[in-house]
Design a protein around this nucleic acid. Structure first.
Length: 543
RNA sequence: AGGGGUGUCGCCAAGCGGUAAGGCACUGGAUUUUGAUUCCAGCAUUCGUAGGUUCAAAUCCUGCCACCCCUGCCA
């Protein structure tokens, strides 16, 4: 028996020990009508987590019962994302794989007297459904004979009726306080080409009818879904009971994932793509899995996040800093380090011999057990980030300033002697002197300096573009900035390393931190200098 | 208003009648050639609220309050 880490596993444990089930079979059931987002990752981790934990099975089930919204493109994208996350499913199934069987089950419901063909229009059905407090009215077609229902339903399939002219309804209870039980429609006529079955069908089962059947047919033991389906569970069970499913799959609901500041509704994301507000579903600003991937978020970090936030039934909103903590943790342990500067500022080390160079060893990742190193060439002419130099340093400024010392990472301590300005008064070059005996690893200079900055070497620079991305923000929280904007794009000189563009935080209330080329730099808000940096970033963001 | 849910630290979240785990965030302090990392310490006398049962309640009972979901031939 494995130890349960959430209420669903607890339920599974109980069922396993009572003998109600003797194994688990779950399914990840997206509708192929859009790309997967971070919310789906939670469901993915849950369903595949159960599979791994109980040595069970898990299918990728594409819930394609509404051909007007679904596309092959989405199915392929979904598979690619799941692959990226590293999950392997036992089978790929579709609701459409079971259309014939679902149809036969509908016939069975009619034969059992549990369903009837209704001639009312969608408007009439809606008008007769009643309200939250009043019972609905029974359809005048509710008591048709089984024979007539059978004949009519067959004709529906044969295309004898127009879209919406008739539908098949479950005969349950128009007075039920649960509106889902008021004779719900279970089959509708819809002439729409399905991306898999083409024009073979002109009637399609509704989710509420198809889902329990597909679960049963696949041998699913636990049908995990989000909270909004709680009210549908009685209907889910009704289908299983009336059709005599044994064993009957059990639906269990859990709270969907909300992350502060992230827009997550598929409807909204789709609109962003269609309106061209973003470059596509894979735009790094999107909270889609493919967007996060493009942003540089490691799959392992995302899975770690999903596992750490847990599963419960309480509506909640997880702070994005939690996601970032997971990403940071993974990256810190695994990212290959390289140095980079975003805004190059030339530094000439005046007392360093003109033609001299030195090969310096850099750890590719200081945390790895078997250290790998990389050579970096130090010489008279290098570049640093202009953000690491200040003309008007605030108190406790550790980095480079006029007449101040700073350590060039893994190299020497330098002192800024002079500044060359352009005609606009901006510094374009720093004239510095180095302390020869301060070389990293053999420093005998006795100079203590707190600041350590990155640098890149001129002759081996390669130009690469690094982009910083903001998040898509919820418009209700940030009026007027509903889509966010791409933040500044800088040409950057990268030394000897691959760049994974990634900006971690836009939570301006907290701190601003980002990763450049696997190298962390964390700045605290209490530092006034940083505050202005954040403000300027925010300004960029607002443009 | 009828039904279905949920309320434990700023944010997640364990707990299932025996006297409040953990993570994120935050705050101190130590190490540090990344203002990172690492380390050590601190961080709910209290579990939406008011009563009740009990030797004992976050856990059981009752009332109240707050929030979420439900009136698609969407999923």
């Amino acid at each position: 028996m494995v130890e349960a880490t959430n209420f669903i596993e607890q339920i599974i444990n109980e069922e396993l020990s009572s003998g109600k089930v003797n194994g688990t079979y779950t399914r990840f059931p997206p509708e192929p009508n859009g790309y997967l987002h971070i919310g789906h990752a939670k469901s993915l981790c849950l369903n595949f987590g159960v599979k791994e934990k109980y040595n069970g099975k898990c299918n990728l089930f594409l819930d394609d019962t509404n051909p007007s919204k679904e596309k092959e493109e989405f199915e392929q994208a979904i598979k690619k994302d799941i692959e990226w996350l590293g999950f392997s499913y036992d089978e790929v199934t579709h609701a459409s794989d079971y259309y014939e069987q679902i149809y036969q089950f509908a016939v069975k419901e009619i034969e059992l007297g549990n369903a009837f063909v209704c001639d009312m229009s969608p408007e009439e059905i809606s008008a007769n459904r009643g309200t939250l407090t009043e019972a609905g009215k029974e359809s005048p077609y509710r008591n048709r004979s089984i024979e007539e229902n059978l004949r009519l339903f067959k004709q529906m399939r044969e295309g004898k009726f127009a879209d919406g002219e008739k539908c098949l309804r479950a005969k349950i209870d128009m007075a039920s306080p649960n509106i889902n039980m008021r004779d719900p429609v279970i089959y509708r006529i819809l002439r729409e080409t399905h991306y898999r079955t083409g024009d073979k069908w002109c009637i399609y089962p509704m989710y509420d009818f198809a889902h329990p059947i597909c679960d049963y047919l696949q041998g699913v033991t636990h049908s995990l879904c989000t909270l909004e389906f709680e009210d549908h569970r009685p209907l889910y069970d009704w289908v299983g009971i009336t059709l005599g499913f044994n064993p009957k799959p059990r639906q269990i609901e859990f709270a969907r994932l909300n992350v502060t500041n992230l827009v997550m509704s598929k409807r909204y994301l789709k609109k962003l793509v269609e309106d061209g507000k973003v470059d596509g579903w894979d735009d790094p600003r999107m909270p889609t899995l493919t967007g996060l991937r493009n942003r540089g978020v490691p799959a392992e970090a995302l899975k770690d996040f999903c596992n750490r936030i847990g599963i419960s039934k309480a509506n909640s909103e997880v702070q994005i800093s939690y996601l970032e903590a997971c990403i940071r943790e993974y990256l810190n342990a695994n990212a290959e380090r390289a140095m980079a500067v975003l805004k190059p500022l030339k530094v000439t080390i005046t007392n360093y011999p003109d033609n001299q160079t030195e090969e310096l060893d850099f750890d590719i990742n200081p945390n790895e057990e078997i250290k790998r190193t990389r050579k970096v060439t130090f010489s008279k002419n290098i570049f640093i980030d202009s953000d690491d130099f200040s003309l008007a340093p605030p108190p406790k400024y550790f980095r480079l300033k006029k007449d101040g010392y700073v350590r060039l990472k893994n190299a020497y301590i330098i002192k800024c002697d002079d500044i060359v300005f352009d005609k606009d008064g901006n510094p374009v070059e720093l004239l510095c002197s180095y302390v020869p005996e301060s070389k990293s690893g053999s420093d005998t200079s006795g100079i203590k300096c707190k600041g350590v900055i990155q640098w890149v070497e001129e002759s081996t620079c390669i130009d690469t573009e690094i982009r910083q991305y903001g998040y898509l923000l919820k418009d209700e929280e940030y009026p007027g900035q509903d889509f966010g904007e791409r933040m500044n794009e800088n040409s950057v000189k990268i030394f000897n390393g691959k760049v994974e563009p990634y900006v971690m935080e836009n939570d301006f209330d907290k701190a601003y931190q980002f990763l450049r080329t696997g190298y962390f730099k964390r700045l605290k808000l209490k530092d006034k200098e940083i505050l202005s940096e954040i403000v300027s970033l925010k300004d960029n963001f607002n443009k």
